[in-house]
Design a binder for these strands. Sequence first.
RNA 1: GGAGAGAUGCGAGAGUGGUUGAAUCGGGCGGACUCGAAAUCCGUUGUACAGUUCUGCUGUACCGAGGGUUCGAAUCCCUCUCUCUCCGCCA
Length: 425
Amino acid sequence: MVDIKFIRDNLAAVEKNIENRGMVADPHKVLSLADSRSKLIQDIDDLRQQRNVNAQKMKGPMDGEARQVLIAEGKAIKDQLPTLEEELLSVEQQLSTALMKIPNMAHPDAPIGKEDKDNLEIKRIGEPRKFDFQPRDHVELGRLLDIIDFDSATVVTGPKFYYLKNEGVYLELGLVRYALDILQKKGFIPVITPDIAKEEVLEGIGFNPRGAESNIYTLEGTGTALVGTAEITLGGYHMNQTLNEEDLPIMYAGVSHCFRREAGAAGQFSKGLYRVHQFTKVEMFVYATPESSQEIHEQLREVEEEIFKNLEIPFRVVDTCTGDLGAPAFRKYDLEAWMPGRTDAGDWGEVTSTSNCTDYQARRLGVRYKGKQGKGYVHMLNGTAIAVSRGIISILENFQLADGTVVIPEKLRPYVGFDKISPRV
RNA sequence: GGAGAGAUGCGAGAGUGGUUGAAUCGGGCGGACUCGAAAUCCGUUGUACAGUUCUGCUGUACCGAGGGUUCGAAUCCCUCUCUCUCCGCCA
């Protein structure tokens, strides 16, 4: 949520930002609704004041006739209130809806563009490996090694689900522990979060669970939904709290399952584990002061780079363009790993993403801070440490041998307990 | 799931339907005393929203949440949530 005052003072910039992001939102409507709201609040407060003054007059003993006159007056005032109060409620709902559509301002350096191909590559680390055989994709490798079973999952649960078996299980658990160990050394507090959250929290983070294009599974009749990321539950962790400035930044490493509907997402770019309805993820989440958030955002990107560099997976970093940012993000970096099985020649595929959402989420969730330097809404940042399913794709496809054997990256071996996975079929 | 008890400011804890935004104690902050500290004493200490002649002032709302009764509700009524105790069930 953007500050209404900011919209009023920077109307042209807000409109330009909406255009750059390719979004539809109406800041003029927000302002006119905000004006109606103020007017209604004033009228209601005036009436209530009259009511209170009138009631005060009746505190002590007085003769019956005078009292009757005052009572009648009080009743008259009271009768006027409900209409205005209902009107205010309706205006506030409209305002909230209109305001929610206004996206966060984007970083001035964020590249302007419509879709992911407009993202700006800022660095490459590692060289995509040259194969002297035609590399298999992870779907085939998973079948060959008997560590991923899509077919059974389709029968039991539905498409875009999977069973992990044998070494696949330890691959998941090992990746989680590998990432947690790195984060824990950097001061992140490890957390296993609930996989379900209330819709108000989802909305505060910037998801609209009931929206037309929602990627969220809602749970009928409960007001809750399956989380698409631990960003939701970690962002909600301190909702409606005022944090001490000295305690910031607060850094969490959250482990959760992630559930996504992915309606209509099909085709070769979403095959196998790449786009699934359920996966496990270790998520970084930081509450920070406004002064420090940009620096911390760079640090989150560096942590992501370290995690993939140590796994010896080639990747590149992109500065996400305005059209691909998502409403809450001020700036976002994606890490794209090299995936040799993605198309015949291989391709980059997003494996992590880190966003600085500034005070956009904090304003709606009511997360403030107070301290010597000042007070206000905290800045909230998130970043993927490891999205296990895509991590597994990267490892299988990059470290395969001609016979299908997959060699485990050295740094990961202590966490999985084996150094290679051999074909079973 | 069943029975009972409770929910008030930073904490503890009062509060006959009308001088209660809320006693009292503790904590915090400021000051006095002191070489300094402790002790003692004095003062001060909520949040949100709206307006404003804007380092302030005025108004409104807030005593778990939401409704209701009333001229007037922390106080009466209803619903819900949460916490605690006991029983049942269970990983």
